[in-house]
């Protein structure tokens, strides 16, 4: 009956659409947008959100260079996120030497970077957080999250995140912050894209105290290393 109302050309286009729909992981470029709020309905800034495919979706590896800067004797930004295999550029924008390190796990590292210089590192292989410090300035503290997906971003001051998702299907949406009071500092939920292309999440877990990356001394000519 249906075919009676359609000419062959139209039928062919419909079939194509049906085929596309059945081939569920086909490519469609669309935005995934996420809004994050805390229990008091305030926007949550600097939260890392990333999508891990649940279905058999092959995501392309992105080639990005992540900059982890040191400025004003502080890690700038405090939180960075990268896809495994990306290269990280540690850039010392201060006028003094820093001794950057991470003491735990496979991603353990340590090197000194002189004023104005940078050091590149492209072998962060273990997934998860890399907690970093400076062995000269103990108050410095920064985090790098290594994820296995190109779909990641950090929330802006309005708690907003936007990701270009190329493929439809089911994903695990994970929210991480180094001080998020939750197991592994993460909360997650499942989403189905593109149905759930606009998600608003209220995170009831608290953000524990973030120690301020600031030297307690206001005098620059102190002798202790």
């Amino acid at each position: 009956m249906l075919f009676n109302f359609m000419d062959k050309k139209l039928l062919s286009s419909y079939l194509k659409i049906i085929i596309i729909c059945c081939f569920s992981f086909s490519a469609i470029a669309d935005k995934f947008s996420l809004s994050l709020f805390d229990a008091d309905n305030r926007p949550m800034q600097d939260m890392v959100a990333y999508l891990e495919p649940i279905d058999d979706i092959k995501l392309e590896k992105v080639t990005k260079i992540i900059e982890v800067g040191q400025l004003g004797r502080a890690f700038t930004p405090y939180i960075s996120v990268m896809q495994r295999g990306n290269s990280v550029d540690f850039r010392n924008r201060d006028d003094i030497t820093h001794h950057i390190y991470s003491p735990v796990g496979e991603n353990k590292f340590s090197f000194k970077i002189k004023a104005g210089q940078s050091q590149s590192k492209d072998d962060f292989e273990e997934l998860g957080e890399v907690a970093m410090g400076c062995n000269i300035h103990d108050w410095m503290s920064g985090y790098l999250l290594v994820v296995d997906t190109p779909l990641f971003a950090k929330s802006d001051p309005l708690g907003q995140i936007s990701l270009d998702v190329q493929q439809t299907g089911k994903y695990k949406l994970i929210i991480w912050h180094p001080q998020l009071d939750a197991e592994n500092n993460r909360v997650s939920r499942e989403i189905s894209f593109p149905k759930d292309n606009k998600v608003t999440m209220t995170i009831t877990n608290k953000i524990l105290m973030i120690s301020e990356q600031k030297n307690e001394e206001d005098f620059d000519f102190l002798s202790d290393y």
């Binding site: 390190y101 003491p103 735990v104 340590s110 410090g133 062995n135 290393y225």
Partner: peptide, 13 residues
């Protein structure tokens, strides 16, 4: 002469 180790995973240096 001074030697300062890196902290270990429990933060001891």
């Amino acid at each position: 002469l001074k030697y300062r180790s890196l902290p270990n995973s429990n933060g001891y240096r």
